[in-house]
Design a protein around this nucleic acid. Sequence first.
RNA 1: GGUCCCAUCGUCUAGCGGUUAGGACGCUGGAUUCUCAUUCCAGUAACCGGGGUUCGAUUCCCCGUGGGACUACCA
Length: 482
Amino acid sequence: MSVPVRVRFAPSPTGMLHIGGVRSALFNWIWARHTSGVFILRIEDTDRARYVPDAVDQITASLDWLGLTPDEGPIQGGNYGPYVQSERLELYRHYAEQLLASGALYPCWCTTERLDSLRQAAQKAGTAFAYDRHCLKHPQALTEPHVLRYKVPANPSVVAWDDEVRGKLEFKTADIDDFVALKSDGYPTYHLANVVDDHLMEISHVLRAEEWIPSTPKHLLLFAAFGWEAPHYAHLPQVLGSDKAKLSKRHSAKSALEYRDEGYLPDTIINFLAALGWNEGSGSTKEIYSRQELIQAFSLERIQKSPAVFESDRLDWLNGKYIRELPIDELLPILEPFWPKAAGAFDDAYRGEAFALIQERIKHLDELPDLTDFFFTDPDQKLVKATLPLDKVEQATATSWLQSAIDIIEKSTVGFEAAALEKLFRDDYLTTIAVEKPGPVFMVLRVAITGKTATPGLFETMAVLGQKTVVKRLQNAIFVLK
RNA sequence: GGUCCCAUCGUCUAGCGGUUAGGACGCUGGAUUCUCAUUCCAGUAACCGGGGUUCGAUUCCCCGUGGGACUACCA
């Protein structure tokens, strides 16, 4: 590769970074890593009306959490800064003036009312809207508020490019409107800022979502007007909501940080998103990729053309799989914010033992309290009574089973660990109470000890809780049955 | 309305002219089992339609249809 790869993720700080944005960031990041190139974060905050103050922090926090840290950006700095467009206003003005002088831009004083009626007329006529260049013929004083429009040339008659994902794409110049390049408040529009910055920052590849396809010819025209070489373009397929429409806040699209707070692992998100619109192909049935594998296998040619629906069933499965495969000591620090309050009184060794028992049962970490509460607090006795299968087992029978359990535990001389307990209960205990099928009995004990009908193995759970706690809870259960 | 993009199981996808159309998630059934899960088996389910091109189309071309994006002094 002759030209060094420089790619950018260029979000506008108008809200939370949602999963579609993360996917764009990810593909840029992977491509940069794959090519040993540079991954740049550029903040496109030229719309002061929609600006959300802490959005930049959210974006930064999201990328950090996912490990998609930029090589250059507002925080990291770099030789092509500043990386926030509102700090580059002089630059855009300078280049706008250059194009004004060359006649590529012209001032326009038209009111929104006039433009609206023009649009309606175009709609009625069944044609594409294009500004009628009224102000070109009837200029007003430059001291009056105005915008600068790009004068779309008649030649070339088509603007085309070879998209890295979609192949040849072309638009008729005649269909392109004289778009605004510089707003009346002196800020550039996306089109101008984007082109100036991509040039100045020496961006080699623009990887962005397909919604940008219709504006690409405008950008190409601008590059040509400046006499600059345009970057390569790769338009990524849309990420859709379950209603098949473009993902947005309206579709309750979650932000990256929400996934963090719900207990999804960064690797889960990365792996999942990478497979949404990209695959290795050539018959590969590989489902799980590490970051390194992703970086190695990635290529622009294998990016999908068709949009992909973001479906959370698969995400949950993947997250569960990642959680199951991580060793406990790596998990413990990640688990910290998710434990139930009562876990505060217990040390990591105990928490680790508890977690080991639910590790294969948890899909996302915010389920942790629900899955582990009984390891840290005695179950509510009313709940125990309500949960005991008293419709299937006589109350007196249940009571006697519980008492026998206490007796056999207290008489036992074997250690209070899972295997020994299982042997004790399967042999001696069942014999003592003269029961053959262990199911109902073990269920009664499970509910008495945990307050739940679905838990990890009874004896593993007992072993973690310890003899004292187990006996106490069995006694509590007997008490509440009386 | 105009411009543009897209089209294989419900979903993510493999396939790059000849396949019993493969994998994964989900779902269903089974095995293991003290419940729930894990794990392991098995099953369910797709080439949008019509024309071409070709000995032969899921695959190439065209037209429809469907879905989507854009159509701002938003990005």
